[in-house]
């Protein structure tokens, strides 16, 4: 454990910002969001759970995968892989946990996702422990916790008079090299408040409930707005499209891009001929929850939810994943 003063931490962040891309929680019109920052002045050190997860920096909302140039009948394809290193500072332990969930599919299943893997390799995760669980948080039910270092390279714990930094991986040790360390003063802040645990039902017990009426009850009010999947640190479905960026006589430049997609959207499974095997909102909502609690753990290992609670807070019609989990637990007998 290393201790530094608030000034020491800011000096370290300023140095990082000069050398590599620094992403950190910052205030955007009153909302805490992870954003690229150029100086430590912009970095929030006391903040709630940011409103969006950190996945945008490893699986960007929109990402150019290929640049294609067509000259007459000749085509060249260039792969786009940015090589700058980046540090994600101040991410919450649930966000790192979310990346570990994506890793199970994007890194551990063959073939690995080339782009995600590349971003993962060029990224250092410096997490900030939470000093309480906020509204909607249920990370402790999902195998995480407000001070969980498991999926981080460095865990920072706020203290009474400064910050306690604990390197977790060799990457974490390396990134802390420039940090000015002093004698510890004061104690690390404890977790002030824990939320009630939510029951997690094992994947096999979800199966008999596939035809249950709870999906109709919850799904009827879904608006198919997709916000739950966009704020989710583990939702990773994507769409691939072409964008024509430049047309000149004899030359066309195209970008092949991928963008986040959502299984709660109307067209997710619709094929060109019009057939849609999942035409109703209850079926689509059911798919989202089955993906997280049944399919994903069965196929790839980890549960597909880390309990960050963002989908609960962002849903315009108050669909609450924990309510669903309680219903399933009750229906399946615990």
């Amino acid at each position: 454990m290393r201790f530094t003063t608030p000034d020491g931490l800011r000096a370290w962040l300023d140095r990082l910002a000069q050398e590599i891309d620094l992403i950190a929680p910052t205030d955007v019109d009153g909302h805490a969001l992870y954003r690229p920052v150029s100086s430590s002045d912009e970095v929030l050190l006391d903040y709630e759970r940011p409103e969006l997860s950190a996945k945008d920096y490893l699986l960007p909302a929109t990402e150019v995968m290929l640049r294609v140039e067509q000259r007459g009948s000749s085509v060249t394809i260039e792969e786009v892989l940015p090589d700058r290193k980046q540090v994600l500072f101040g991410i919450r332990p649930c966000d790192a946990h979310g990346l570990a969930v994506i890793d199970a599919l994007f890194l551990e299943q063959d073939p690995p996702d080339r782009y995600y893997r590349h971003h993962r390799e060029r990224t250092v995760l410096v997490g900030m422990a939470c000093t309480r669980m906020w509204e909607g948080c249920f990370c402790t039910s999902m195998g995480g916790g407000p001070m969980d270092p498991t999926h981080l390279d460095v865990l920072v714990r706020p203290g009474e008079e400064g910050f306690f930094l604990r390197p977790v991986t060799p990457k974490g040790v390396a990134i802390l090299e420039g940090l000015e360390v002093t004698e510890p003063r004061g104690e690390p802040l404890p977790v002030e408040e824990y939320n009630e645990p939510v029951p997690v039902t094992e994947p096999a017990k979800w199966r008999p409930l596939f035809g249950d009426r709870i999906w109709m009850r919850h799904g009827e009010r879904c608006l198919s707005c997709r916000i739950c999947t966009y704020v989710c640190p583990t939702c990773r479905c994507f769409d691939v499209t072409d964008r024509v960026v430049e047309v000149q006589p004899g030359v066309t430049r195209i970008e092949r891009i991928r963008a986040w997609d959502a299984c709660t959207s109307t067209n997710y499974r619709r094929v060109a001929g019009g057939h849609n095997p999942r035409p109703t909102k209850p079926e689509r909502l059911r798919n989202r929850f089955y993906c997280k609690f049944c399919y994903y753990p069965e196929d790839f290992g980890p549960l597909g939810c880390v309990g960050c609670g963002r989908c609960i807070l962002s849903c315009p019609v108050d669909i609450d994943i924990t309510e669903m989990m309680r219903d399933v637990a009750e229906r399946s007998g615990g």
Binding site: L105, F106, Q109, P111, D113, R236, C237, F238, D239, V240, R258, D261, C263, Y268, R269, R270, V271, H275, P277, N287, Y290, C291, C294, Y295, E298, D299
Partner: peptide
């Protein structure tokens, strides 16, 4: 079976039929 797909390598999620 036909399905909407965007990667073909088990990543994009689009063609899921249950698990």
């Amino acid at each position: 079976l036909e399905a909407r797909m965007h990667c073909g390598i088990g990543k994009c999620g689009r063609c899921n039929l249950g698990e």
